[in-house]
Amino acid sequence: MTKKATVSHIHGHEKYERLIAAASRLLPLSAAVAHPCDETSLRGAMEAAEQRLLVPILVGPRQRIVGLAEASGIDISHTEVVDVPHSVAAAERAVELVREGKAELVMKGSLHSDELLGAVTRREGGLRTGRRISHVFIMDVPTHVQTLFITDAAVNIAPDLMAKRDIIQNAIDLYVALGLGVPKVAILSAVETVTPSIPSTIEAAALCKMAERGQITGGVLDGPLAFDNAISLEAARIKGIKSPVAGQAQILVVPDLEAGNMLAKNLTFLSGADAAGIVLGARVPVILTSRADNVRTRMASCAVASLLAHSRRTQEPIRA
């Protein structure tokens, strides 16, 4: 029984293995790692370097980082350390390194996400573009054949219609950049019919119409869809839903952050899923890891960011 369970676990996470293998074949890009001042974040950055996923530039209090490396047995002797006094300064300097052309990725260390994203989204001196900043979880669910993208479950609390337009476009662009093809995008709600008393169903219908009119491109959209008939062909059949998306969605667009966060964590803790995280819409990909992430998830987050950055360089999808 033990052997069988182990084989199943490894097979279930082969989606991440493909991403990591694809990124490790490319030239590793420089990544400004903001405030890697606990063992988890420092080790994660250095393990990503060992896998040739990135070249870390450690940004934070030098003495603290060096002392932590020595105490934890982590070799940073060949790694650049940029000395700044605290976490806020680390976030600001990491952004500056991108603006100076010295880094092509940003990676979160042990600082709060708000500190890092505050520096990224600053109007003066940040990394803003014309696109709304948003987050995507790339979920490797062992019991589900497809990689699931869930957005936005970490940045935009209650996005309006135009914010959701950018959230969807960011996720589609990522999916395409990874060489995964044309994504099927399900705009989730509690029900699959347009219901005036549930505003997210009205927004879902509007977003689908926006896609028809070319305001969202690169994917096939449908909504509103409930979670079951978005990912289960049988559930869609029972409900009588005929759609190219229903039952086989690859991108799940949630109504708000609370719904997305609960969905992602349910998949993680009840289905054994891994949830790699990346922030999109900035000038460079931002690797947003969690203290609860395992090594495979951290490596997958770095791999996705690297593949996206390389795709932007070449203006071509990078086959994962």
Rank of each mutant, 00 (worst) to 15 (best):
S232L: 08
P28Q: 02
A94H: 03
A90G: 10
A163L: 11
T217P: 02
L307F: 09
L116D: 07
L267K: 01
S134I: 01
S41I: 08
V120M: 06
P61T: 04
L267D: 12
Y16G: 12
H9R: 15
V176Y: 13
T147R: 07
K108L: 03
G118H: 01
I157L: 07
A249Y: 12
I10C: 01
E104T: 04
Q315N: 14
A23W: 10
Q146E: 15
Q248P: 00
L267E: 07
A119E: 00
V245A: 11
M46Y: 04
V194L: 10
G181Y: 10
S113Q: 11
L225K: 01
A206G: 00
P255K: 05
R18C: 03
G281A: 07
R52G: 03
H9N: 10
P255Q: 02
G218S: 09
M210Y: 13
A71I: 05
I231V: 15
I187H: 08
A69P: 07
K4G: 00
A259C: 14
A211Y: 02
V245K: 01
G73P: 02
V95A: 00
L188E: 14
T121V: 13
L68S: 05
R62Q: 13
E39M: 10
N261E: 06
S189I: 04
A275G: 08
G277E: 00
R132E: 12
A22N: 05
R132P: 01
A275V: 02
G218K: 14
K242M: 12
A309P: 01
I202L: 14
L307T: 04
T193E: 15
L53N: 04
